[in-house]
Design a protein around this nucleic acid. Sequence first.
DNA 1: TTGTATGCGTTATCAA
DNA 2: TTGATAACGCATACAA
Lengths: 331, 331
Amino acid sequence: MRVTIKDIAKKVGVTPATVSMVINNSQKISQATKDRVLKAIKEMNYHPNYIGRSLVKGKTNNIAVVASFFASLFALESVRGIELNLRKKPYNLILYSTKGMDENEEDLLKRILYEKRADGLIIISLKAKKELMEEFKKESVAVVFIEELIEDFPTVKFNNIKAAFLATEHFIKNKRKNIGLIIGNKGMNAEERLHGYKEALSHYGLEFKQEMIHTVIDYSFEDGEKALNSLLEKNKKLDAVFCAAGDITAIGFMDAAKEKGINIPGDIGIIGFDDVYLANLSTPSLTTIRQPIAKMGMQAFDLLMEVIEGKEESEKKIISFEPELIIREST
Amino acid sequence: MRVTIKDIAKKVGVTPATVSMVINNSQKISQATKDRVLKAIKEMNYHPNYIGRSLVKGKTNNIAVVASFFASLFALESVRGIELNLRKKPYNLILYSTKGMDENEEDLLKRILYEKRADGLIIISLKAKKELMEEFKKESVAVVFIEELIEDFPTVKFNNIKAAFLATEHFIKNKRKNIGLIIGNKGMNAEERLHGYKEALSHYGLEFKQEMIHTVIDYSFEDGEKALNSLLEKNKKLDAVFCAAGDITAIGFMDAAKEKGINIPGDIGIIGFDDVYLANLSTPSLTTIRQPIAKMGMQAFDLLMEVIEGKEESEKKIISFEPELIIREST
DNA sequence: TTGTATGCGTTATCAA
DNA sequence: TTGATAACGCATACAA
């Protein structure tokens, strides 16, 4: 049997209530009994059972992170950031992934909420229904979003519009006229990046053409290879590509170009997105948009703590991170 | 207020006990009341509170994964594998990382144990004291290790000796004579890989030289850059490097070589370790040892389930995975 | 300053 | 087949 406060109480000759008060270092316990209880706790190797505590307190000290899967660079970096700041607080991290589960996303969120599995949630790149989110508010379970934005909920995001504008503008200033775009096929991110791309074109008096857009699903290396063929087929004069679908896809694109004897940046310039390690390692090294993902995770955790601790002004905060264009050899 | 079995009971006109029995679909409840209760559960949107359940059952349905840091590719891939199989079971994942915590590793493990935070643990690449582990056994909390081995505990590991042998042998067969080794500075892995490296040298009649070894701490990109300078300084004739510290470090090494005008594989051949997906994307692409990390994670989870479910023969099982040498352009 | 009593949400035992 | 009651480990309001 595990030792409980009862055992300590019996040993010291006080009641469980007294022991409990010592543990939560109440002011109204005499130093003498405090010492005796503490001594017994050490001797008997007592540790409070967090389930008992949770039940009476209505608090789990767990933070749930929900994402579609955790093996993506974005999710990984976010979790790393969250973890970094989590360490300063007495919370644990529980990960819930939705991809490949029998349960759908909404049911999962409901379960976390109603089964009382966490005091707060960080939801990464997932769209959630507004009504369900209101339920979280009602049950006072704090929620912070990363990337996808829900009205009236705190969110950490990235200025995708400006990012896409910067990338596109960089091409234009370098006299590139036929700028393709590789982009994800869904989500707010993709919309915003498309928006920034269009904005830059129109700002510099260039025409937007639908055939310049290639959408991808997986953000994979292979997606980049396919994109090259598809874009070239439709646009013989293609001289630049902004790969808003990430660096990995951009590198897939470069790899395919190399095989076809297309020179980068001579024939086609390319800009990636994210600035992962690899961007600096490819040949040519990749010009890209740097996104401070880990910092975004850290910020999301801090925001969550503020909401849990009751700071009202944090409840609707939207924190946006600004892009940085890292110029290397591919443009 | 959250709805509890009491609310359901009141609404239906039965006792909480009956509702509980319905939820756990006991056989001895009449279909009629079963239906009424189920209907009320749906109407009132009831979900069982897992904390209440845990308290009486003495079971948390949580699996803890402990590692020094989850942002490493090894830990990430392991978690991914664990996650994959976890989905088939009614368990949740809790992540505990030790690096950078105020608390040391041993205290963390003690906390997980005595606070009753998980029914089972998977410990990744961490050395634990035998006595403490015996405590887990006594409290019947299941434990499975990945990578580090503790006597009498189930472990999933990788044949590091053979892996290092294969890599070193590959160089030798390609007429490389001065083979450097980049390797972590602690842990069983490093020892085993060093062992395999030495074994290959001696098997092919080459002399082992201490100055051919460069140890690293972080397994980082930067470590690879430093390794190049250090190794070259001590060995002018260096013509091969087995980077047992992982692909990222190997890529760092290549990057530094590129800057110095050293040709890979012309001047120096390099072999990495892990086969992360970056390995195939670098220029030149990286020859490396493939380690089925996700599969190891899956296996660890299955083993853990077996122990939790009381299969005695699983309690001392050691499952070893075999290496595969993936030959690409860097050798 | 400490003890008594009660409750958190659930399950299990026993009786009806 | 269902109800009454106690128990899990802990915290807290109130009484002493």
